[in-house]
């Protein structure tokens, strides 16, 4: 899933390890999210959004290709 985790983390001058500890996951998990190889759970997505003080949909773009719009 497209996301802005890396941009926001770098803007906050944090390492992956810092962010991992802040949201209680491994550094590898943060790396996998940033590389879009792993989609976080809702709980982790909300934790990340809360950490960066933004909304979940500002941090993650599910690329639904208009599926929701069609419904």
């Amino acid at each position: 899933m497209n996301n802005g985790v890396r941009e926001r983390r770098e803007a906050a001058d944090m390492s992956q390890a810092d962010l991992a500890v802040a949201v209680d996951v491994s550094r590898q998990t943060i790396n996998a999210i940033e590389r879009e190889r792993y989609d976080p759970s809702l709980e982790l997505a909300f934790k990340l959004a809360a950490h960066f003080d933004c909304r979940v949909e500002e941090l993650f773009d599910p690329e639904l290709d208009g599926r929701l719009a069609d419904e």
Binding site: S26, S41, E43
Partner: peptide, 10 residues
Amino acid sequence: VTLFDERDAT
């Protein structure tokens, strides 16, 4: 500390 996180579970 938490040894395994949600990605490990996945």
